[in-house]
Design a protein around this nucleic acid. Structure first.
Length: 203
DNA sequence: CCACGGATTGGCT
DNA sequence: GCCAATCCGTGGA
């Protein structure tokens, strides 16, 4: 895949409805440029969150220091720390004041795979069992790309972490299910993933 | 100040 | 399938 021919997604992409953005994020390339090796992966699994009525969203409780970036305009990175161990990253969507975002749950590695394995396990090549274990979960994605608290609020339109445009994944290749790991608003089918992709965290 | 729980992961049964 | 690890954000006293 020739990444140099792809263009960066603009603010207008992110400012739309969170479910539309979530679905269209599938197949796009997440890139991190601020190390010697360019790290990149195709988004294969996402979940949408909308604090206006979705109790599982971090913005449901109103604005706090932790979630304030989610209340801004779309196109920024919301990073949070959870379970005392893991970072997870979200793409903020919509217009100012909405509190909506898309959780990046899994990537298919495209560039910098060796560096990603070093970030995850401190070694390369990986054990055979870890071949598909590299970026198949939200905590794993952040670990592989080196995304931490310091990346909170990164501007995806102008910053060193961004998304490259690719063709939409056709509807018949997208699976829509309930979200994973939440206890509230579990009835919403707001998780999307690319059918038969081995890097999806689970069916 | 203190208590509680979590948008997960990895290891063990 | 089950569960501990581990610490920060949040809310109540």
């Amino acid at each position: 895949m020739n990444l140099s021919k792809l263009t960066r997604l603009k603010r207008s992409f992110y400012k739309r409805d969170v479910l539309t953005v979530a679905k269209e994020l599938l197949g796009k390339i997440l890139v991190r440029t601020d190390s010697k090796i360019l790290l990149a992966g195709k988004i294969v699994e996402v979940e949408a969150y909308d604090g206006s009525f979705d109790q599982a969203a971090h913005t449901y409780i109103g604005m706090t220091k932790r979630n304030e970036i989610m209340f801004g305009v779309g196109g920024y990175l919301y990073v949070y720390f959870t379970y005392g161990a893991h970072y997870c990253c979200n793409v903020v969507t919509g217009v100012k004041g909405q509190g909506t975002a898309v959780l990046i749950r899994a990537l298919e590695p495209v560039n910098g795979i060796e560096k990603m394995h070093l970030n995850r396990y401190g070694k390369y090549p990986p054990d055979e069992k870890d071949k598909y274990n590299l970026t198949s979960g939200p905590g794993k994605v952040c670990k592989a790309l080196g995304i931490t608290r310091k990346d909170y609020g990164e501007d995806l339109v102008r910053g060193r972490i961004y998304l490259l445009n690719r063709e939409k994944i056709p509807d018949d290749k997208i699976v829509r299910t309930k979200r994973i790991g939440i206890k509230k608003s579990t009835e919403l089918d707001w998780r999307f993933y690319i059918k038969d992709n081995p890097f999806v965290s689970r069916k």
